[in-house]
C-alpha cells in the first residue's frame, strides 16, 4: 500500500483534524468546525468518525469498529478493512483489548477504561436543529447558553406522547455548559458518557464538526423536574443466547412460531459471555 501515506491521509490533513480534536477536548461539548476531507466512502456513512480514527491511529493501536452493536456488519467490516490496509494495524472484537473504538449507534456494554478512545459517528451534530434551522442562530444560542429549544422539543414530546420519547440522540448537557447531541445512541447508553474513564470523540463528516467529552466530564441527560430521564427498560427480558439481563437488547420475532425473543445488541459482549460459559462448564465443543 505504498500508494497511500500511513492511515490514508497525508500528514498535514491528519494534523489539521487533530488540531480541531484538541480544541474540542479543551471545550467539552462545543462543536468545532473542521475541514472535512473527501473520503473513499460517501458522506453520511461514518466519514466523521473515520477521519478522527485515521488522524489518531498509530502503529501500536488495536482497532474495534461497531455498527449498531455489531462487529460484523458491512459498514463495520469495510471501515476495519480500510484502516487495516492503510495502516497495517490489528483489529479486534474484544472491547477491553481495543485502544481505539469507532462506533455507530452504540457504546459497548463493557465499561471503557482509561487510555481507550471511543469515536462516535454523528449524522446531525446540532441538538437545536429541529428547533431552529439557521446555523447562524444556533451558534448564537450556544454562545449565549440559551437552550430553551432543547427543552421545548422534549416538552412537545411529553404533550404529544405522554413521556419523553426520544428513540436515540437524547440531548445532554456537558460540563454544565454546552448542550450536545450524543449521536444516535439509545438513551440506554447516555449514562455511560457521564464521568467516562475513556475519551469520547464525536465526528460529523458531512456537517464538518468535531466535538468531545473528555474523561471524567459530567454529562447530564436533559429532563424536567416532574418527568425524569429514563433509559429504555429491558426489565423481564433476557438474552436468548447468553442469558444477560441488564443490557440493551434487540427484539426478534421467530419466523415460524411467531414468538418474540431478545438478544444482546452488543454482539461481541454476547459472544464473550458465551465463550466464558463454554470454558466454565467445559462443554465439549464438538458435541
Amino acid at each position: 500500500m505504498s500508494a497511500y501515506n500511513f492511515a490514508f491521509f497525508d500528514e498535514g490533513s491528519k494534523r489539521e483534524i487533530r488540531r480541531a480534536t484538541l480544541k474540542a477536548i479543551a471545550i467539552p461539548g462545543y462543536q468545532v468546525p473542521f475541514a472535512s476531507r473527501e473520503m473513499p466512502i460517501a458522506r453520511g456513512w461514518g466519514t466523521g468518525g473515520l477521519q478522527l480514527t485515521l488522524s489518531l491511529v498509530g502503529k501500536e493501536d488495536v482497532l474495534k469498529v461497531i455498527d449498531q452493536g455489531s462487529d460484523e456488519s458491512v459498514n463495520a467490516v469495510n471501515i476495519k478493512k480500510l484502516v487495516g490496509k492503510t495502516t497495517g494495524i490489528r483489529a479486534t472484537e474484544e472491547t477491553s483489548e481495543a485502544t481505539l473504538i469507532q462506533s455507530r449507534h452504540r457504546i459497548p456494554e463493557i465499561p471503557l477504561s482509561e487510555g481507550q478512545i471511543l469515536v462516535l459517528q454523528v449524522p446531525l451534530p446540532e441538538p437545536l436543529r429541529a428547533y431552529e434551522s439557521s446555523e447562524l442562530v444556533t451558534k448564537k444560542l450556544h454562545g449565549e447558553r440559551e437552550y430553551s429549544g432543547a427543552w421545548l422539543m422534549l416538552f412537545e414530546q411529553i404533550m404529544r406522547y405522554g413521556n419523553m420519547s426520544t428513540g436515540a440522540d437524547h440531548p445532554v448537557l456537558v460540563h454544565d455548559r454546552y448542550v450536545m447531541a450524543p449521536s444516535p445512541i439509545p438513551r440506554f447508553d447516555n449514562p455511560k458518557m457521564n464521568r467516562s474513564e475513556a475519551l469520547i470523540l464525536l465526528g460529523a463528516g458531512r456537517e464538518k464538526k468535531v466535538y468531545a467529552v473528555p474523561p471524567h466530564t459530567q454529562v447530564v441527560s436533559l429532563a424536567f423536574d416532574d418527568y425524569l430521564f429514563q433509559t429504555e427498560s429491558s426489565a423481564g427480558n433476557s438474552c436468548k443466547l447468553c442469558g444477560a439481563t441488564d443490557v440493551f437488547m434487540d427484539e426478534f420475532v421467530h419466523e415460524e412460531t411467531g414468538e418474540t425473543y431478545h438478544q444482546c445488541n452488543d454482539t461481541s459482549y454476547c459472544l464473550s459471555r458465551l465463550n466464558r460459559k463454554v470454558l466454565h462448564q467445559e462443554v465439549p465443543l464438538n458435541g
Binding site: 440559551e146 430553551s148 429549544g149 427543552w151 421545548l152 416538552f155 412537545e156 411529553i158 404533550m159 424536567f224 423536574d225 416532574d226 418527568y227
Partner: peptide
C-alpha cells in the same frame, strides 16, 4: 401549549 411553554422554559421553568 408548547408555544406558551417556550417562554416559561426560557424563564427557567422546568416543571411540565
Amino acid at each position: 401549549i408548547g408555544n406558551i411553554a417556550e417562554k416559561l422554559i426560557a424563564a427557567g421553568n422546568r416543571n411540565v
